[in-house]
Design a protein around this nucleic acid. Structure first.
Lengths: 189, 189
DNA sequence: TCCATCATGTAAACAGTTACATGATTGC
DNA sequence: GCAATCATGTAACTGTTTACATGATGGA
C-alpha cells in the first residue's frame, strides 16, 4: 500500500493558504490576530474567523519559509509580528494569475441555485414564495454592498474594488430570479 | 471538558447531504453509483465524484431514515436500489426554502475575486493580463453553458433551468472584469 | 472595577478527498 | 477477448470547525 502524496513544499497552495499569505503580505507586519480579523471582515465569509484555522495555516506558511515571524514581548506568551518573505511574495505572484487552470473561472457554488434545483419538491405556491424570498434577501445584501461600494476607493485598493464583483454577481442573480418568477407566473394562468 | 455537539438527527443537513437526498428523491429509485454520476455531471463541480464521499453520506441519510435501500442481487456484493422516504421528502421540503437564513443569499466564493484582491502583487502589465485571461476563460465557459441552455427545457426541469443562473452569474463577472480593465487602462495614460 | 478588545493557542470531532481494491455486465 | 461502464466499498489523510482555555491592555 504505497501512499505517495507529494510533499507539502511541492503542492500548490490552497485558497485559504494563499489568502492568508496575501493578507500578511498586504497588511504586514501584523499579528495573527489581525489576519484573523481581516478574514472575518471579508465580504465573502467563506472561512470562519476561528483561531483553529488561522494558526495552523500560519504555521504551515512559516514552515515553508513564505512568512517570517519576529517575537515581541507582550504579556506572558508574547506576540509574533508576521511579514511575508521574498519567497512568500514570489509564491503569491505565481498564485494570483492562475485563472485559466481547472475550474477557477467556472460558475461558483451558489446555495440558492442548489436549492432551486430541487424546487419541484415544493407545491407551486411555495415555489413562487421561494423565488420572492430569495430575491428580497439578495436585494438586501446588494443594497448593503452598494453602500460600501459608493465610497471613494483608491484605484489600487483591489480588495475594495472587488466589492463591485459581488455587486455584479448579485445583480446577475436578481435578473435570473426575476426571469424564473415570470416563468412560473406565466404558466400559472 | 464538556463537548455537547447536538446529535446528528437534530443538526441541519449539510449542503452535500441535502443535495444527495435531493438527487435520490428526484431520480430514485436508483443506485448510489447513479447518484455519484449525477453529482459529477453537475455544472458546478463543487464536490468530487469520488465514492468516498457519496457512500458515507448515503449511510448517514439511511441512518436518519431519510433514504431507504432495497437490495437486489447483482454480482457478488449485490446492489442497492435507493429511494427517498416520506421523511426524506419532508426534510428536503424544509431544507429548500431556507434562503433568508445566514449567508445563503450573500455573494458566493469566487476564486477570481479572491485572486483579484491581491492583484497589487503583480506589476501593472501583468495585472492587465490577469484581467484579460480571466475574461477569456470566463467567456469560454459562458459559451459552453449558453449552448446547453439553448436546448428546449421542460418548465419543471429546475436543474436544467438552473443553468440560466450560472449564465447570469458569469455575465455579471464579465461586466465587472470589463469595468476593471477600463479602469486600469484609463489610469495607464 | 469591569468589559471589550487584543492576543495566542490546543483538542476533539468531522467532513470530504485521494487512492486503493474488487468484481459484474455489456458491447465491440 | 477486452475495454468501458456499472457497481460497491474501505483506509488513510488532511483541512476546517467548534469549543475550550488563558491572559494582557485600555477605556468607561
Amino acid at each position: 500500500m504505497k501512499r505517495r502524496l507529494p510533499p507539502r513544499s511541492e503542492r500548490a497552495l490552497t485558497d485559504l493558504e494563499a489568502c492568508v499569505l496575501g493578507v500578511v503580505w498586504r497588511d504586514g507586519p501584523c499579528t495573527a490576530y489581525a489576519v484573523r480579523r481581516e478574514l472575518a471582515a471579508s465580504s465573502t465569509p467563506r472561512w470562519s474567523d476561528s483561531a483553529g484555522s488561522i494558526y495552523p495555516v500560519l504555521d504551515r506558511l512559516m514552515a515553508l519559509g513564505l512568512v517570517a515571524a519576529t517575537a515581541r514581548s507582550w504579556g506572558e506568551r508574547g506576540k509574533k509580528v508576521l511579514a511575508a518573505t521574498a519567497a512568500g511574495a514570489a509564491r503569491l505572484r505565481a498564485w494570483v494569475p492562475q485563472v485559466a487552470a481547472a475550474d477557477v473561472c467556472g460558475p461558483t457554488y451558489d446555495p440558492i441555485r442548489t436549492r432551486f434545483c430541487f424546487l419541484a419538491v415544493l407545491p407551486p405556491a411555495r415555489r413562487r414564495r421561494f423565488l420572492a424570498d430569495a430575491a428580497r434577501s439578495t436585494r438586501e445584501t446588494l443594497d448593503r454592498l452598494r453602500g460600501n461600494a459608493s465610497r471613494r476607493i483608491r484605484p489600487d485598493d483591489f480588495e475594495a474594488l472587488s466589492i463591485h464583483a459581488s455587486v455584479c454577481e448579485l445583480e446577475g442573480r436578481l435578473r435570473w430570479l426575476g426571469r424564473m418568477r415570470r416563468g412560473l407566473t406565466a404558466r400559472r394562468t
